[in-house]
Design a protein around this nucleic acid. Structure first.
Lengths: 136, 136
DNA sequence: ATGCAAATGCAAATCGTTTGCATTTATATA
DNA sequence: TATATAAATGCAAACGATTTGCATTTGCAT
C-alpha cells in the first residue's frame, strides 16, 4: 500500500508505522496519541512507539499536530486539499505549501459557529524570498 | 486601563491578570507560560496562577493557545485583525468570528517558506445554522 | 465596613510525553 | 539467500509541563 510515503522520508516500513498511518487515514477527525493507541486493534504497539512515530510523521510533514477545544494534542493527516498556493505578487511565481492549517481552522470554526463552510480562498498573496532580495 | 475585558467575562480584575494580559499585549509574538513567568517584572506571580489565568483567558476567548514549531504550547492575544467574516451564501448574513487562526497560520507559513505574506481572504463562504434548517 | 465567593501562593500530585537500554527488525550489500 | 548494520521497538523509569488541594488573601457587591 502506501509505500512511497515511507521511502520518500527514509522511514523504515514497519508494522507500527503502517498501523498508525492507517488509523489516521481512516479517521474522520484528528486523534490524540491515546486514541490511536486504543484504536490499534490488538494494542500491540507500545504507547512510546506511537509517540515516537507521531513525532517522525510530524517532522516528515506527513501529519500535523494541533490543539483541540479540549486542550488536548491531536494529530491528523495532511491531506491534498489542505495544500495551498503561495503567489508572489512580484514575479508571479506559484509555490505549493503542504500542511496549511486552514482546513483544521475551518473545522474549528464550523464547530464553534454551526456554520457549514463550503469554500475559502486557497491563494495567498505575498513576496517570495527571491524577490525580497532584489532592491528597488 | 483594559477594564471591560474583565467585567465582560466576569473575571475579577486582579494584579496577576492585569500583569499577564499586559505582557501578552506588549509581546510581538506568542509566548509560553514559562516565558510569561520570566517576563513578569518581579516574578511575583506564581506559575500555577499563570496557568490558571491563561486557561481562563482561553475560555473567555481573550487569548488563543497553539503549538509552535518547537512543539511548545504558546499563547497570544486574539487581535482585531484576526477576526474574520462568515458569509452565508443563502441569506447573505454576515457574522464576525473571533480568534480565527489564519493570522497565526500565515506567520507559520512565512517562517517555513520565507514568503512575506501581504494579504489573504477574510471572508469565508458557507451556510449559516438558520439556513441549514430550511428544507428545499 | 462586612461578608462571601473567587483568586492566589505554595507544595505536592498528576499525567502526557520522553528517554535509556537491551532486543528485534528492515533494508542494503555481498 | 545470507549477513551486517543502523534504525525501530518494547519495557520500565524518568521527566517536566500543567494541574490540584488547601489555607490564606483579595476583589467586589451589599
Amino acid at each position: 500500500m502506501n509505500d512511497e510515503i515511507f521511502t520518500k522520508h527514509s522511514l523504515k516500513r514497519t508494522h507500527s508505522r503502517i498501523e498508525i498511518l492507517s488509523v489516521l487515514e481512516k479517521s474522520q477527525s484528528p486523534l490524540t496519541a491515546e486514541e490511536i493507541f486504543k484504536l490499534l486493534r490488538k494494542r500491540d504497539v507500545d504507547l512510546s512507539t506511537i509517540y515516537r512515530t507521531l513525532n517522525s510523521f510530524v517532522d516528515a510533514n506527513i501529519i500535523k499536530k494541533e490543539i483541540n477545544n479540549n486542550k488536548e494534542n491531536i494529530f491528523s493527516i495532511i491531506k491534498e486539499e489542505d495544500k495551498h498556493i503561495l503567489v508572489c505578487t512580484k514575479c508571479h511565481k506559484r509555490v505549493e505549501i503542504a500542511g496549511c492549517p486552514y482546513h483544521e481552522a475551518n473545522e474549528k470554526i464550523e464547530q464553534e459557529t454551526g456554520f457549514l463552510i463550503n469554500d475559502h480562498t486557497t491563494e495567498i498573496y505575498g513576496i517570495c524570498p527571491d524577490c525580497q532580495k532584489i532592491k528597488l
